[in-house]
C-alpha cells in the first residue's frame, strides 16, 4: 500500500498523524511526510485506512499494490 497526498489540499492539520503516527508526520512548517513503503502490518494498515477516511479535507488516497 502506498499513500498519495494531494498537496494542493493538505493543510497539515495532523488528523492522519493522530491516528497513525508511524506513517504520517506533520512538521513545523505544516508539511506532511508519509512513510513509503508502509510497513505491511494488518493493524497498521487498518489505521492507515481510517486515517484516509478521517482526513477532513480528503487529501489522502490509498494506492493498493
Amino acid at each position: 500500500m502506498k499513500i498519495m497526498v494531494d498537496r494542493t489540499k493538505c493543510d497539515g492539520n495532523g488528523v492522519c498523524m493522530g491516528i497513525a503516527p508511524e506513517v504520517f508526520d506533520v512538521d513545523d512548517e505544516l508539511y506532511l511526510h508519509v512513510a513509503d513503503p508502509i510497513p505491511d502490518d494488518p493493524e497498521l494498515r487498518a489505521r492507515v485506512r481510517q486515517a484516509v477516511t478521517s482526513c477532513p479535507i480528503l487529501a489522502l488516497k490509498p494506492v493498493e499494490k
Partner: peptide, 12 residues
C-alpha cells in the same frame, strides 16, 4: 495555534 507537532506529541 499552528503548533501541530507540539500538540500531536502531547497527544501521545
Amino acid at each position: 495555534v499552528n503548533a501541530s507537532r507540539a500538540v500531536m506529541t502531547f497527544r501521545r
